[in-house]
């Protein structure tokens, strides 16, 4: 017994080290899968307040770029809806509003878009999270898709009352189903290196992909159909490198997509996955 006390007294620092290190590693390996990490959700409420403060200061610096992107998107949407814009509608007597909804535009009615501001973002980690300033009060639920007007961003993983956290597609174990111009279905995955490039797998050689071919979402995953992912940049031993159309280093505003008709499908798919596990 005396020897034991002597041992602890002499090497107490080593034991303190051992205990603290074990606590840390326990936290690491209990939370290493982003689907079930409780750590992030509890930490969010404190840190997101700080990030909102910071974003309110920094966002002033990026106003120009944000304005430009919003004007561009407005123009594109007007084009899609077929609203003709005349120079001066009051003078022009022949002016009247024409709305020619084509079949594609009607389909988008199933989706509800919730605008959100990015208050924190990272691109250098293994699993990258994006914090948004909308939460369950605005109707955000886990597993909703997050997109910008340029392309895909990620999916919601944690929701608190006023904030939510999304896993970006720049994450380990995040797969997005995609389709290439000839109709072949493939899989998009990030290789943990460059935040502008993702890998495209599972496309047969017969698809005959060329450089700069567009890669879009297939509609089999949580994302709506025909959302741009990026363009083919390089052919690397069997896989393709895809240059992302979303610039993750300059992410300011995003849309959270709620698929109104999709609830039944996700419930069914979830029960299947639970049965397998």
């Amino acid at each position: 017994m005396r020897n034991l006390i002597y041992l602890i007294k002499n090497y107490y620092s080593f034991f303190v080290f051992l205990i603290l290190e074990l606590i840390c590693l326990l936290i690491v390996f209990k939370n290493n899968s982003y689907q079930q990490s409780s750590y992030i959700n509890s930490a969010r409420s404190i840190s997101s307040k700080f990030y909102t403060k910071k974003e309110s200061i920094v966002s002033f610096l990026t106003l120009n770029a944000v304005n430009d992107s919003l004007v561009k998107e407005n123009a594109r949407l007007k084009q899609a809806l077929g609203i003709s814009v005349s120079a001066n509608p009051l003078k022009d007597t022949s002016y009247f509003l024409t709305r020619s909804l084509d079949s594609n535009a009607k389909q988008t009615v199933h989706y509800k878009y919730i605008a959100a501001k990015v208050i924190n973002n990272s691109t250098d980690q293994k699993i990258n999270y994006i914090t948004l300033n909308v939460g369950s009060r605005q109707g955000i639920k886990p597993k909703m898709a997050v997109i910008t007007d340029n392309g895909v961003v990620g999916k919601i993983s944690h929701v608190s009352e006023n904030y939510s956290v999304a896993v970006s597609i720049l994450s380990d174990r995040f797969n997005v189903n995609c389709v290439v111009p000839d109709g072949s279905i493939g899989n998009i995955k990030w290789d943990n290196k460059d935040p502008n490039i993702v890998l495209l797998k599972g496309i047969p050689l017969s698809a005959n992909l060329k450089l700069k071919d567009s890669v879009m979402t297939s509609g089999y995953s949580i994302f709506p159909e025909k959302i741009m992912i990026g363009r083919v940049a390089k052919f690397v031993n069997g896989d393709y490198q895809v240059w992302l159309s979303t610039n993750f280093n300059k992410l300011h505003y995003v849309y959270v997509v709620e698929d109104i008709t999709n609830i039944e499908r996700t419930i069914l798919e979830d029960t299947v996955q639970a049965d397998i596990q």
Partner: peptide, 24 residues
């Protein structure tokens, strides 16, 4: 210190583990 850093950068316990090691 490590845990505070972890909170803000979405890394569960990794900064804390590295900090405890170098402090030892």
């Amino acid at each position: 210190t490590g845990l505070t850093m972890d909170m803000f950068s979405n890394t569960p316990g990794m900064h804390a583990a590295a900090m405890v090691l170098i402090c030892y």
